[in-house]
């Protein structure tokens, strides 16, 4: 069984998920996540050697569409929903690094 989840793990995960947690939330979430993961100990212990994972319950493949242009949505309608827009684009605060 994996070692129990720690507050450091939870803080790391919050960072990955772009969430800020107060110290109080951090403690609370650590306990709650630990309880759910402890419940999952039953499947952790299960011998699943040779069992393939199921990502899709559906036995289908090759769902493909023809390469034909279809009208999209109106830019003004979309930008009207944006928190901030400028010059036909979505405006965001400054970006500190290149894309990973």
């Amino acid at each position: 069984m994996a070692t129990p989840i720690s507050t450091a793990d939870v803080a790391h995960v919050a960072r990955l998920a772009r969430l800020a947690l107060s110290d109080e939330e951090l403690d609370q979430f650590t306990g709650q996540l630990a309880a759910v993961l402890a419940h999952a100990a039953d499947i952790e212990a299960l011998d699943t050697a040779g069992v393939p994972p199921t990502a899709h319950a559906l036995p289908i493949h090759n769902v493909l569409r023809d390469d034909v242009v279809v009208a999209g949505v109106d830019r003004e309608e979309v930008l009207a929903q944006a928190p901030a827009a400028e010059s036909g684009r979505f405006r965001v605060p400054r970006i500190l690094g290149e894309a990973p």
Binding site: A2, H12, V13, L16, L37, A40, I43, E44, L46, T48, V51, P52, P53, T54, A55, A57
Partner: peptide, 18 residues
Amino acid sequence: SAGYYDAYYGQAQKVRTL
């Protein structure tokens, strides 16, 4: 997340098969 995928998500998908 790295290091836990197999134990949790991967294992859960195998249970789904079962």
